[in-house]
Design a protein around this nucleic acid. Structure first.
Lengths: 153, 153
DNA sequence: ACGTTTGTGGGTAAAAGTGGGTAGATTTCC
DNA sequence: GGAAATCTACCCACTTTTACCCACAAACGT
């Protein structure tokens, strides 16, 4: 066993099959607490990718959303847009999930997908967009360094 | 098991048939606690859409309404307007409910309907109005971000 | 090298979504 | 008051989608 606690790490390249299914990397399946019953909640990321939360993590988000004011239209809109694109996905005996068509479109995924661990959740990217993201931030090394300073102070 | 606890999530597009019936998405039917006996309470939303509460959730609302002052006209008016448009709907063996004509008119629904999960209740929108809603809030990203900050603090 | 795990493809039975028929109840109208 | 019209719950039929299963090849670990 060489997984880091119960956190999601690493990056894996997979292909989407004709039925819209992607494999969940075996290491991530092992890292998912059994209480989640093999299921993740998929939704839109703040970045243009799909996010997979273990249900236990999603629960915490839901609790905060439900405590938002129901009186304020903006708060209702916020909740709606968050929940609207969320769907529970249970992976099959082969370890695959069927990604909703809407989320595949949002992430711009065609055939290939890069699955990236983000400690408490997982991201699924169209490979080109991930590279684009790298290019976008490469000239902001100073700011990145100062984040490093905060962390390793 | 492929539902998120007992919460309503995701967004589904359906058509209203000639008899004024809409399908309740299978995942939402499964998420509805059996104590509700396949029935929701439909009413007007604060937004221009139809809201479906599980009866157990509606009961909690009723209890709060009943404790409002019966002496004050404004309170009576508030209760009246809340309850006036509420109607219990039980879905049939195919999983469909017949929406009251008044609520369909209120939501501006013609042929298509977008059913949106809101964790503890369901919203039914005319698709165009949902988009309109998106457009209305897109230039208030700062405020939405500050809600995010509150939640993910 | 060989058994085991992992990733990928595809077939099939069940479930979901959609349309429409019909009988019993309710309402309307004369 | 009673017949005609309407409404509504329930049923059946059909199509599409999804979930579940089996199979196999490549990669991995020992």
């Amino acid at each position: 066993m060489d997984l880091i606690g119960n956190s999601f790490t690493g990056s894996y390249h997979y292909t989407i099959d004709a039925k819209g299914r992607v494999n969940i990397p075996a290491k991530m399946r092992k890292a998912l607490n059994p209480v989640n019953d093999r299921t993740f909640v998929a939704t839109r990321g703040s970045d243009p990718c799909i996010i997979l939360y273990p249900v236990e993590v999603w629960r915490q988000i839901e609790e905060k959303l439900i405590n938002l004011s129901k009186r304020r239209a903006l708060h209702r809109y916020y909740t709606r847009n968050f929940v609207r694109h969320a769907e529970a996905l249970q992976y099959d005996q082969q370890g695959r999930v069927a990604l909703p068509a809407g989320l595949i479109r949002y992430a711009g995924i065609e055939k290939d997908a890069e699955i990236v661990g983000m400690i408490d959740h997982i991201e699924i990217w169209e490979p080109g967009r991930l590279e684009e993201c790298d290019r976008q931030y490469e000239d902001r090394q100073d700011e990145l360094d100062s984040i490093s300073d905060e962390i390793f102070a």
